[in-house]
Design a binder for these strands. Structure first.
Lengths: 337, 337
DNA sequence: CTGTTAGCGCCTTCAA
DNA sequence: TTGAAGGCGCTAACAG
């Protein structure tokens, strides 16, 4: 039944103190005399004692688990965020527990319940589009909560993200600034963030009097480079006047690039391509692709740090962090007007 | 202290049975009368009871945690494997706990100890190059263990993978079959699997009498498309006779492609490119890139399934599964000899 | 600074 | 098929 066999009682006996002192020396070393502490440390080392997290959780009334709810484990964007989270938590006594909502609100709600019933040390959730009930659960959660990915009106607790609508606006404006006049928008699975980006695209395109529904392609299929090629082909066939395209993400952009190469289209002069996220490869793509750089790993890092800090009793200077974005223009030569 | 506040005792009282019966109806429903079972189910639903995993772990002497140790959370390959694992475990009562060894053997050993001290339900570890001590720990582990990624001589317990050396051999031979005569090898961070692939490349190249160290480039830097471009540039500058290149992964291959495009080199006629893993984008790259398809997600799926099955008392038909690989040739036209 | 007391919520064992 | 007793390993809360 016992794993290492070594319990806190064994350590206590060997060190000539009570189990409580051992427990303390582990969690609040400052409140234990240096002598005891050293002796205990030596015994722990010698016996190879490792505290049982289950027993600890049961006794303390909370676990060392930080729950993370994301809508997809397939999407690169979330892998990047997770990397940031793991990076911070890896060398702490806490553990990450991942939940995948699969873009389904009910699943998200169920995951939230499950996590909460485990008395997590903290919770990181994606987006701001929780159901009313999920929101209520999170507001009353007995732990701190960070919403990531987006910025929104009423943060549940803490928040790290950026404005997708604004990012799309700036990217679209950038296309106009470079001299393009008839931009298109390509998107795959339309989640809330995609909708906001699409809205940002429309904002600018309408203002410029360049709105044309035939230049907006969105499907419910999951994103992929293959889909990017398909959508680009469709676009070029049906809206040949298109002179640039804002892709909802870099996979689509890469696919769009390949389709242009395949057709012998001059990128970026005949068609300008702008992706979203600025994955590593975008910087070296040739012909060049512009992309909107987002700070995904940092988002995870900051969210996890916020949880760890509050766990130590340190409040963040600012509960809402806007990470912003950057249009990485790789339009070496300005487009001729 | 209590989260939902609802404990097994509450359910028992409300259902007019003992806590023990509730506990049983949850774990061994067959051993509880249909009447009790229904009544209990109703109460659980009504009260929103969720068993406390910590209490359960403490009492049962083992957790519902399946530990997974991988060397990198950055590497796409492992994200794909994790996706397979999560897919299987997501809808089971078990949970995934991820450990990142960062390619450091000591870290792997420490992680193994930590996991084992938590009495995991199962363990999935990467590769076959554990330290002697880690191996010993795993062999004596009180749970089932699956090694993934590779195949090897002496499986600790179960194993799912493929031969990297053989895969590289076949890929290299494929280049010769297509008419290329002076293939190069590009690699980033050289982990054990990369070494084996390199060996496979050398096997074939030496046999063909085409071995030339100046056409083998490997660095310790982490892999990226940018690095692929850099290495390809270096290769083309220093070994201009190169007519094809086997890249240790698809990021490098993509970078290599971009470098060729940048230099106006005719791919695949002047230079043939072969990647490794066959990421989704490779299928639609233009100019075309061949790649060695590996079954990463399936690897995770099978490994997780093996654990879950053995947990149910079902032994796998075969404890070692060779997933193989496939060279996805995208050499539309045969190379002229 | 240290120890005592009393569980945390559930499951194992054993008996009915 | 069900229940009673006891304890898993640890930590709050409260002394001392």
């Amino acid at each position: 039944m016992k794993s290492t066999g070594v319990t806190i009682a064994d350590v206590a006996r060997e060190a000539g103190v009570s189990p409580m002192t051992v427990s303390r020396s582990l969690r609040e070393p400052a409140r234990v005399s240096a002598k005891s502490r050293e002796r205990i440390a030596e015994v722990i080392e010698r016996l190879g004692y490792v505290p049982d997290p289950a027993a600890r959780a049961l006794a303390a009334g909370r676990t060392n688990v930080i729950g993370v709810i994301i809508p997809s484990v397939t999407n690169n964007v979330f892998s990047d965020v997770m990397r940031g989270i793991y990076g911070v938590i890896e060398n702490s006594p806490w553990q990450v527990q991942l939940g995948n909502s699969r873009y389904v609100a009910e699943t998200e709600e169920a995951l939230t319940r499950t996590f909460l019933s485990q008395r997590p040390a903290g919770l990181i959730v994606s987006g701001v589009d929780q159901t009313r009930k999920t929101r209520e659960l999170l507001i009353n959660a007995p732990c701190r909560v960070v919403q990531i990915m987006e910025l929104g009106e009423a943060p549940i607790d803490m928040m790290v993200g950026f404005s997708h609508r604004e990012a799309a606006r700036v990217a679209t404006q950038h296309l106009f600034d470079k001299g393009y006049r008839r931009p298109a928008f390509l998107a795959a699975r339309v989640d809330p963030r995609t909708k906001r980006r699409m809205a940002g695209f429309e904002d600018v395109v309408r203002t410029a009097g360049a709105f044309d529904p035939s230049r907006i392609l969105a499907t419910s299929a999951p994103s992929s480079a293959a889909l990017g090629r398909t959508l680009m082909a469709e676009l070029l066939d049906n809206a040949p006047e298109t002179d640039s395209v804002l892709c909802n993400n870099d996979d689509l952009a890469l696919g769009a690039l390949f389709e242009c190469l395949h057709r012998g289209i001059d990128v970026p002069n005949a068609i300008g391509i702008c992706g979203f996220n600025d994955l590593e490869m975008m910087a070296v793509a040739y012909p060049t692709i512009t992309s909107v750089k987002t700070y995904r790993e940092e988002m995870g890092r900051i969210a996890a740090t916020m949880i760890l800090e509050t766990l130590k009793g340190i409040e963040p200077e600012e509960p809402v962090v806007d990470l912003g974005f950057d249009v990485m223009s790789r339009q070496s030569t300005a487009k001729l007007l």
